[in-house]
Simulated scan of single mutants.
Amino acid sequence: MRTLLNVLWLLLGGIWLAAAYFVAGIIACLLIITIPVGVASFRMARYVLWPFGTLVVRQPNAGAGSAIMNFIWFITVGWLLVVVHVITALTQAVTIVGIANAVVSLMMIPVTAFPFGKELIDRDDPRALYMTSLVPTR
């Protein structure tokens, strides 16, 4: 099911979002101080290309450095990528099939705006049970 959702996502806007992140990463890598922003942009490009089955988890040990990098990210490319997500969601919501994808695109906005201090892990990764609320209760 995840593969079907990912293919549908890819066809209905994921490829364009990933291209936007890729271009933002290339632009961010032009200056030395923004190279970490470029690396984060490439990481996010992979996430928006194939999002279903990937979890976004907060890193508990993220400190002031990630807050500073989130500020630099938002000022340089984050706000523009948020606008791209909103435009993509609006165009996806035109069709009935695209409404679910539009919701997913809007749910990605917090990660798009502030990606530092977060980790992307596969849902099948054993760490996913301990890093999220997926821990089974008795």
Rank of each mutant, 00 (worst) to 15 (best):
S105N: 07
L129Q: 04
I68H: 01
L55C: 10
P36G: 02
V135I: 02
V86W: 12
I121A: 02
T112I: 05
N6H: 11
G25A: 14
T88P: 02
P136A: 07
V104K: 14
L129E: 06
W79Y: 11
M1N: 15
A93S: 15
R43C: 00
V135F: 04
V97C: 08
S66P: 03
V56S: 12
G53F: 04
T112M: 06
A24M: 08
R127A: 12
I33H: 07
G98N: 08
I32A: 13
G38K: 02
V56F: 10
N6M: 11
V97N: 08
L17Y: 10
M69K: 10
F114I: 02
L11S: 11
F116L: 04
L80D: 06
L8G: 14
V86A: 13
M44D: 07
N70C: 06
L31A: 15
V23E: 13
K118L: 01
T132M: 02
T91F: 15
G98T: 09
A45K: 00
A67V: 08
V94K: 07
M131P: 00
V39D: 00
W9A: 05
I75H: 02
P126Y: 02
W9L: 11
L4A: 15
L129Y: 05
G14E: 09
G117Q: 01
I35W: 06
W73M: 06
I26D: 11
G13C: 12
R43Q: 08
T112Q: 06
L12C: 14
S105L: 04
D125L: 00
T34N: 04
C29Y: 08
F22C: 14
A40D: 01
V84M: 13
A102Q: 09
F52C: 03
T95C: 11
T3H: 13
S133C: 00
R43H: 03
P51V: 04
P126K: 01
T54E: 08
N70K: 07
V37F: 00
R138Q: 03
Y130C: 00
T112N: 07
T132S: 09
C29P: 07
L129H: 00
I32V: 15
T54Y: 06
P136Q: 03
V82N: 09
I72C: 10
P126Q: 01
T95G: 08
R127T: 03
S105W: 03
V56I: 15
I72H: 04
V77A: 13
A45T: 00
V104S: 12
C29N: 14
S66I: 00
I27M: 15
G78C: 10
R46F: 05
A40M: 12
L55V: 02
T88A: 15
S66C: 05
